[in-house]
Design a protein around this nucleic acid. Structure first.
Length: 424
RNA sequence: GGAGAAGUACCCAAGUGGCUGAAGGGGCUGGCUUGGAAAGCUAGUAGAUCUGUAAAAGGGUGCAGGGGUUCGAAUCCCCUCUUCUCCGCCA
């Protein structure tokens, strides 16, 4: 959520900055106008309430003293009806403003490239060169079916499209990666491990910014409690501290969370339908930080380095791009995407996304901290990043480590977890 | 799923309609005392949020959350959530 005061005082600037994302934000002028009306009504109703409170207290006093209260009762009746109607208009204005703000995305960081879509993202670093082969290569879907470690047909029978069964060493590869990533980030990078609920409520979805705009992306449960399947561990893990005041000495708080993630992929009909690149259910290890405002960008860069380390240790070629304004996620101010080399597509594909929301989610989720005993409360900054998407890491390993005979060499760091050197 | 109990500030806890934005402890912060500390004595402790302002002052809201009754609600009524206990079922 953006700060209403900021919008009130810098309307033109806010609209200009938001417009770099694309879209029309002229409605913010209406919001400001509504806010003026709201405050006007608020002043009036508050002074009426003050007077009414004063008179009400007199009634108690009069009664104790045995005086007649009839004369002041008439006065109170008049206050009450005016207060009621004014209160209603204030509440209506509040709700209207809140609704607009919930649909308004975060301001893009001013230093990120301005652009309309992912073609204008800017590469900032590169690790290794794309893998080359001296034999005809296969996609992970072909490799997986031949090795009998990925089964798409039976997953279709059990559930439907965009689901997969991992089998044998395929299942073990997925499981090893989860274990190894959790170990790496918790033991070496100092994150605290979290396994949160995989079902979240509506309030949690609003707090991180999935709702209201991306409701159609979520799997809703048939249940009258407004429950949804977790779309990313970011949701439960940020909400871990919703409505809390964090100890300043504990910041930055660093979590590594493992969950399965569930997405409708509503806007992706027909895209990436082969293989496990885009599934309704996938595993992800996610990094989350709560930081002091002045530290968030330094922590963002450290988080990026922690994510990159996964691919470096796996010896997989990747590059990092800064998302341009048009490709930036709704709640985020700045995002790095890590894209891994996929030989079958002959290009880099997203495998992780590392973002700083600054105070946008903290404001929605009401997560604060206090610098000193008597200091005012301030919003923390929240960061989240992949560490990494597990299924896509499986793809990258299968494709980049494939041999001419269709077998797959297991990256060295995973061998202690896998118990084998090669999948054949 | 059934039956019951509870939710008050940083923590514990009193409080059945006005004199309570909230007794009493604990903790924390300051002062006295001390060479220093402990103990003791003493003062402060809604610090939230909205509004307002240059900053204040002032005002509204705030006793799990939401509605209602009333001139007036922590207190009465309704709904929801959470926690705990017992029973049932169960990985």
């Amino acid at each position: 959520m953006l700060d209403l005061k900021l919008i009130r005082e810098n309307t033109d600037e806010v609209i200009a900055r938001l417009s770099k994302r694309g879209g029309d934000y002229q409605y913010l002028y209406d919001v400001v106008k509504k806010d003026e009306e709201r405050r006007e009504a608020l002043h009036e109703v508050e002074s009426l309430k003050a007077k009414k409170n004063e008179v009400s207290r007199l009634i108690g006093q009069y009664k104790r003293e045995g005086k007649d209260i009839a004369p002041i009762m008439a006065e109170i009746d008049d206050f009450s009806s005016r207060i009621k109607s004014l209160d209603e208009s204030v509440t209506a204005a509040d709700q209207a403003i809140r609704e607009w703000l919930l649909w308004t995305p975060n301001l893009p960081n001013e230093e990120i490239p301005v652009g309309v879509d992912d073609t204008e993202n800017v590469e900032i670093k590169k690790f290794m060169t794309p893998t080359t082969f001296d034999f005809p290569i296969k996609g992970h879907y072909d490799l997986g079916e031949k090795l009998d470690i990925l089964d798409f047909n039976r997953a279709g029978k059990i559930t439907g499209s965009r689901f997969v069964v991992y089998k044998g060493l395929g299942a073990r590869l997925e499981r090893s990666l989860i274990q190894w990533m959790m170990d790496l980030h918790s033991k070496e990078h100092g994150y605290t491990e979290i396994i949160p609920p995989y079902i979240v409520n509506e309030t949690s979805m609003y707090a991180t910014g999935q709702f209201p705009k991306f409701k159609e992306e979520a799997f809703k449960l048939y249940d009258d409690r407004n429950f949804y399947l977790n779309p990313t561990a970011e949701v439960p893990t940020i909400n871990l501290h919703r409505d809390e005041v964090l100890e300043v000495s504990a910041l930055p708080i660093k979590y590594v969370a493992y969950t399965s993630a569930f997405r409708q992929e509503a806007g992706s009909a027909g895209r990436d339908t082969r293989g496990i690149l885009r599934q309704h259910q996938f595993n992800k290890v996610e990094l989350i930080k709560f930081t002091k405002p002045e530290d968030s960008y330094e922590e963002l860069d450290k988080m990026l380095a922690n994510s990159e380390r996964v691919l470096q240790l796996l010896k997989l070629p990747y590059h990092v791009v800064v998302l341009c304004t048009g490709d930036l996620g709704f709640s985020m101010r700045k995002t790095y995407d890590i894209e891994v080399w996929l030989p079958s597509e002959n290009k880099y594909r997203e495998i992780g996304s590392i973002s700083n929301a600054e105070d946008y989610q903290a404001r929605r989720a009401n997560i604060k901290f206090r610098r000193e005993n008597d200091a005012k409360l301030e919003f923390v900054h929240t960061l989240n990043g992949s560490g990494l998407a597990v299924g896509r890491t499986v793809i990258a390993i299968m494709e980049n480590y494939q041999q001419e005979d269709g077998s797959i060499v297991v990256p060295e760091v995973l061998r202690p977890y896998m118990g084998v050197d090669i999948i054949r």
